[in-house]
Computed example of a mutant assay.
Amino acid sequence: MPMEIEFRPGRVDADEGAALAQGMRDELFEIYDGLRLDGPDMPKAGPEELSPPDGSFLVGWSGGAAVCCGGLKRLPDGACEIKKMFVAPSARGQGVARTLLHALEDEARRLGYAVARLDTGPKQPHAQRLYESEGYREIGNFNDNPVATYFAEKQL
C-alpha cells in the first residue's frame, strides 16, 4: 500500500524543502562523481524558477516528516519542466516517487500547463523507468543539461 502523503507548497531554499533539495544535491554529487547541480553549465532551478506565478515547489509530508520534494519551472515555449524530484531514502520503495510525480503533474495543470518535460541521467535507470511507465515519451535535448541522457515529455 502506498505511503499516505500530504503535499504542501514549500521553498527550495528554506526549511524542509531546502533540506530535501540538499539531500538530492549530495546524492547526485556521489552518483555523478562531483556533479554540482548549481554549476554554471546546469539548467537553472532555484527559488526564482520554482516559485509563483510560473513555477512551484512542493514538499510531501508523511507522519509529520518531510519525505519528498519536487518543483516546476516555466520553459520558454510555454511548457513546464519538472525539477528537483527527490524522495528521502527512508521513504523509498513505497510508491512515493510515483505519488510525487502525480502531484507535480496536478500542480502543472493547476498552473495552466498542457505539457510537462523532464530529464534524467544514465545512472538513474529507475527514474527513466518510472517516467516511461507514466506515459512520458522520449524527445530531444530541450534544456542543454550536460549530464542527462533521457529527455521526455507528457501531454497533461
Rank of each mutant, 00 (worst) to 15 (best):
Thr120Asp: 04
Glu30Val: 14
Ser90Lys: 09
Ala21Tyr: 05
Val96Tyr: 00
Val147Phe: 06
Ala114Lys: 13
Tyr131Arg: 05
Gln128Asn: 04
Ala116Leu: 11
Ala14Ser: 12
Lys83Val: 11
Gly112His: 07
Gly46Asp: 11
Leu100Ala: 10
Glu138Pro: 02
Leu50Gln: 08
Glu6Gly: 03
Tyr150Asp: 04
Cys69Tyr: 00
Asn143Leu: 04
Pro9Cys: 10
Leu72His: 03
Phe142Lys: 04
Leu130Cys: 08
Asp38Asn: 15
Cys80Lys: 03
Gln124Phe: 01
Arg98Gly: 13
Gly70Phe: 00
Arg8Tyr: 01
Leu72Glu: 02
Asp54Arg: 14
Gly64Tyr: 07
Ala91Asp: 05
Tyr113Trp: 08
Gly95Leu: 07
Glu138Ala: 15
Gly34Ser: 09
Gly63Met: 08
Gly55Ala: 09
Trp61Thr: 05
Asp13Arg: 06
Tyr32Leu: 05
Ser56Asp: 11
Lys123Tyr: 09
Phe29Ser: 15
Ile139Phe: 01
Ala45Tyr: 00
Cys80Pro: 01
Leu20Thr: 06
Leu111Gln: 11
Glu49Cys: 07
Pro76Asn: 09
Glu4Tyr: 03
Tyr113Lys: 06
Gly78Cys: 06
Phe142Tyr: 15
Leu28Val: 09
Gly140Glu: 10
Asn141Asp: 15
Gly121Trp: 03
Asp77Phe: 06
Val96Ala: 15
Gly121Ala: 15
Ala103Ile: 05
Asn141Arg: 12
Glu138Ile: 06
Pro146Asp: 11
Ser133Cys: 08
Val96Asp: 02
Lys73Pro: 00
Asp144Pro: 00
Arg11Val: 02
Asp144Val: 03
Tyr136Trp: 07
Cys69Ile: 03
Trp61Asn: 04
Asp38Glu: 14
Leu100Glu: 04
Cys69Arg: 01
Ala14Trp: 05
